[in-house]
Design a protein around this nucleic acid. Structure first.
Length: 613
RNA sequence: GGGGACGUAGCUCAGUUUGGUUAGAGCGCUGCCCUGUCACGGCAGAGGUCGCGGGUUCGAGCCCCGUCGUCCCCGCCA
């Protein structure tokens, strides 16, 4: 292979096959950089040594596929290229064969990624030739392999579940597949293997896992694709600790495969605490959290500032942003989500004029230096949100959560925008770069760059104002805390779920729970959700049946493989670690999917399209 | 469904503020020259539906309306 040749190979007769990365024509001497999966080697075509080879070399263009026959030789001392792994040698070619020519590609894979992602995706096969993409997929392979091996060693069995199946109880829209054999009936693509893995527990496979493709027909985001891959697992007779331990093990192995040392166990935080400190259930501790600054203001201050005194008053701080002009601050305003019933104060000069003591105290409480940018976020009495005011001992109310969420959102948007100034994300970038440079044999410490956090104690229900009902915050097989069971009907908001999320650097990596394994409990949950027996039977009938046949206590989790790879690749979106991804509008620009189909196909499927532009 | 950014040569971008002759640059591409380059170098050249449609105007890359595409976010989604 091109990239593997070293000084020790000098004298070897070789045949190299690959793509022409670059060509440097010096007249009677031509250099071809030949590229394959392993890297790049320099091939020399000397007119004196091989006139025919040289003549062919003149015809060759970048991205031609060629075979070079020749001898590996050491370069002269002054011709050594220290920037290339193969820089000490070159191939003295005696023969060259053009295996294939090429149309001129719209961009060169020898260079950095072009800005135009539309073109990259359309010519994905060219884009994937780039070194960065080759590295991302090698990394993905290594991570997947490490996870499989870790789980296998921990006693898990990989079992496949159906792709053509019945709608599963996750909240997302299903992809439907019409049945030819059964007119008017449809399969659904799995949103996750949730029900099947629980049935596998009932079936006695006490430790199951699957690197499973999942499908959800929802709008896409930088970290969301229509189809994505989960590391899905389930355990019989578990405690929550069992699940945490298993995940920590394979996460450590996965990161090690990427050359990063991850220390375990991972820290934990409750949902309420995460909202208080970060304003989100996917905390990013690389930057300072939120600080409660209610104490900095007198009641009169709050009244004058038109701030709701009953709601949290918090400061968010982005280090080292420096002073922002009024125009710069105004450009940030659209980043603030006004729909959360909160407002913000980002003009500290003005605040200091009207409320000098408060301004000083806020910065002091937030631990801000002069260069740090501080914003106060608080409840806006002029624009209260519609929310349930139900509040339970020690728990956050919905209005409170919304103020924290507004602050947390603003914090993460500003953190993204001013990444160059605060430098907190650079730690991760540098760690990723170092890991890639050193390879998995020699790992780098990821403790400052990667921050895994377990989140626990989520509320079991959310109040849905539209329907006036309590709806499950998770899928309806999530077990409530036993201690909270008594409140199930009287105080649904106070019930906590025995479920957990794993977050890292502001991304949700996965979530899981201990499941309900008893039919009576399941029925209670359904009834508290206002799901009738009939409805439950229609939606999950076969599963409820299965529950009656000796279901062991069980629980598990599913983690997003794509997101893990994305973090370890240092990529900004999932498309960088998925070979053939879809655009934000759910289109495959290379394949051209989706498309219309022939009338014949529709007829066979008993489908008539109602309207088509 | 909503908000925002972007759309000019194959690619990266300037030109849009203040409408005015033939729309520019770098890279890439084509041809010629070059024996130690490695982002090779030199000379010459080709390459444009200014995303698309409509409007205003004597005149539109530039102003207005609509529309399409890509990206980010909200809604939606574990």
């Amino acid at each position: 292979m091109c990239g593997e040749l070293r000084a020790g190979d000098a004298g070897r007769q070789v045949v190299l096959m690959g793509w022409v990365n670059r060509r440097r024509d010096h007249g009677n001497l031509i250099f071809l950089d030949l590229r394959d999966r392993s890297g790049i080697a320099q091939v020399v075509l000397d007119h004196d040594l091989t006139p025919e080879g040289h003549a062919k070399g003149e015809q060759v263009r970048p991205e031609y596929v060629v075979a070079a026959v020749g001898k590996v030789r050491l370069r002269d001392q002054d011709a050594i290229n220290p920037k290339m792994p193969t820089g000490e040698i070159e191939i003295e070619a005696t023969e060259i064969r053009v295996l294939n020519d090429t149309r001129l590609a719209p961009f060169s894979p020898a260079e950095e990624a072009i800005q135009n992602e539309e073109v990259r995706l359309k010519y994905r096969y060219v884009d994937l030739r780039r070194e960065e993409m080759q590295r991302n997929f090698r990394l993905r392979h290594q991570i997947t392999l490490a996870i499989r091996e870790s789980l296998s060693q921990q006693g898990f069995l990989e079992i496949e579940t159906p792709i053509l199946t019945k709608s599963t109880p996750e909240g997302a829209r299903d992809f439907l597949v019409p049945s030819r054999i059964h007119p008017g009936e449809f399969y659904a693509l799995p949103q996750s293997p949730q029900i099947f893995k629980q049935i596998l527990m009932i079936s006695g496979f006490d430790r199951y896992f699957q690197i499973a493709r999942c499908f959800r027909d929802e709008d896409l985001r930088a970290d969301r694709q229509l189809e994505f891959t989960q590391i899905d697992l389930e355990i019989s007779f578990p405690r929550r600790e069992t699940v945490f331990g298993v995940v920590e093990q394979f996460m450590q192995a996965a990161f090690a495969a990427a050359g990063v040392t991850l220390s375990i166990p991972f820290p934990r935080i409750t949902y309420d605490e995460a909202m208080r400190r970060y304003g989100t259930d996917k905390p990013d501790p690389r930057l300072p959290g939120l600080t409660g600054v209610r104490a900095a203001f007198t009641d009169a201050d709050l009244a004058a500032l038109q701030i709701d005194p009953a709601l949290p008053v918090v400061a968010l701080r982005i280090p080292n942003v420096g002073e922002l002009s009024r125009k710069q601050r105004e450009e940030n305003h659209p980043l603030f989500d006004l729909k959360k019933g909160a407002k913000f104060i980002d003009d500290f000069k003005r605040l200091a004029k009207g409320f000098p003591e408060a301004a000083v105290k806020v910065r002091e409480l937030a631990g801000a230096s002069d260069a740090d940018f501080v914003i106060v976020v608080a409840g806006d009495p002029a624009h209260p949100i519609k929310a349930s005011d139900t509040k339970f001992e020690g728990r956050l109310s919905e209005r409170e959560i919304n103020v924290y969420a507004a602050a947390g959102n603003f914090r993460s948007e500003l953190a993204k925008k001013y990444a160059d100034r605060h430098g907190a994300f650079r730690v991760t970038e540098e760690t990723v770069a170092a890991a890639h440079a050193r390879g998995p044999q020699d790992t780098v410490d990821g403790s400052r760059a990667f921050h895994p956090i377990w989140l626990t104690d989520f509320p079991m229900f959310e109040y849905d104002l539209a329907s006036g009902k309590w709806v499950p915050a998770h899928h309806p097989f999530t077990a409530p805390y036993e201690a909270d069971m008594a409140n199930l009907t009287s105080d649904p908001a106070s019930v906590r779920a025995d479920c957990y999320d794993l977050a890292m650097n502001g991304l949700e990596l996965g979530s899981g729970s201990i499941r309900i394994h008893r039919k009576d409990v399941q029925q209670q949950i359904f009834s508290s959700l206002g799901i009738s027996d009939e409805e439950a039977r229609a939606r999950f009938g076969f599963f409820l049946d299965a529950l009656e046949y000796g279901t062991p206590p069980h629980g598990g989790i599913a983690l997003g493989l794509d997101r893990i790879v994305m973090l370890l690749a240092g990529a900004a979106n999932l498309r960088e670690v998925i070979a053939f991804p879809k655009t934000a509008k759910a289109i495959d620009l290379m394949a051209g999917a989706p498309t219309t189909v022939t009338e014949q196909q529709l007829r066979e499927l008993h489908i008539r399209v109602a309207r088509r532009e």
